[in-house]
Design a protein around this nucleic acid. Sequence first.
DNA 1: CTGTGACTTAAACGAGCGTTTGAATTGATA
DNA 2: TATCAATTCAAACGCTCGTTTAAGTCACAG
Lengths: 207, 207
Amino acid sequence: MTTLSTKERILNSTERLIAENGFAELSIRKISLQAHTNLAAINYHFGNKQQLINQVLERRLNNLFEVRKKMLHELNQGDVNLECNLEQILHAFIAPALYMINDEHQGGRVFMKVLARAYAEQSDSLHELLAKRYTPIIKEFAEAINLACPDLSRQTIFWRFHFIIGALTYTMGDFGASSLSKQLPEAEYFNQSVAELIQFAVASLTA
Amino acid sequence: MTTLSTKERILNSTERLIAENGFAELSIRKISLQAHTNLAAINYHFGNKQQLINQVLERRLNNLFEVRKKMLHELNQGDVNLECNLEQILHAFIAPALYMINDEHQGGRVFMKVLARAYAEQSDSLHELLAKRYTPIIKEFAEAINLACPDLSRQTIFWRFHFIIGALTYTMGDFGASSLSKQLPEAEYFNQSVAELIQFAVASLTA
DNA sequence: CTGTGACTTAAACGAGCGTTTGAATTGATA
DNA sequence: TATCAATTCAAACGCTCGTTTAAGTCACAG
């Protein structure tokens, strides 16, 4: 706890506050209070509020995308033209998010809420950052799905993958809010979400 | 334009500003400027900012849900135990949103963005309002889907319908932002979205 | 010890926020 | 025309915001 540097404490507090109360209520005064530091320390370490938010996102987004890529590449063994099992592909896309959420120690679950909120927030700067990061990996997965589903047109695959991402994003942002989530322990609810989501995604692409 | 009452101008301006810039940047000063009225007029007509936002949502939500209900009831002809075609049920759920978006004159398209943002926003008051309104109609549609898909468990149907709503919500909020939407005229892009979304939803429930 | 650079702090800045107040204006009715 | 309620208005209230400034603290190298 106290072993963390001021910079890390600021990043963690920011992440938590966004997850709990959203971007609208986020203020550097609340951040500095929760991080047990001074107002000006934030500007000293990060320049300004927006750059701080960007770093909160970048810090974990890089990791998430790397894991997704790695799992996909392990499936096609480096040969992008190799046809893979559809369920495995979708698993490679959805499971890393699962892992991240369950990785409570590293604050992954908190971050997924942040990510969901960042999507919803239509601020230009956030959307730019996300689009820049997300586009290449979406294309890569869409290619793999294309090989696994030869009966569907490229366009249809693009659309459905987009819808799947929508369902995923919506579900991530919904944790703790949905009526179902209040009837189950959170971890259990989460695991069920992911299992159902993968089945749902497979079904939507194989009907 | 000038024939609208102050109250209506305030509601319309609020709706537009939320759609364009989100809840975070919404201020009653901006609203009053765009509505060509005074700051205090807003508090006079609506009490406070939150009540104004609620009325913006209520105004169109009521209509949207009524249309959905009506279309569903026309399918099962008043007998909720009558089995309907799955595609027709999903059409009854998705198409009214389509109609609303295309109804530019009544500002429906603008409102769908507002609705998408309202979902993302995790403010308690907004979530409460939406949950209260949405729960009954979701149950009704889930029942109809249950009859149309006898092979799927109640729970699976609940989950998948939840995911479909997620995909719909995500797509609604995405208008004007997605890369695909910039390659097509907006109306065309929209019609394609809905057609693809219905096919996607049907596929996800019939695999 | 002393100086130096990295870091932390308290205080203040100007700006925008939601809301309230009380006076001016309007428009229908008597 | 006079009256009165409904509406609009300008001004101010207290508050929080992001950022900046300059003084303070600290660990460590010379």
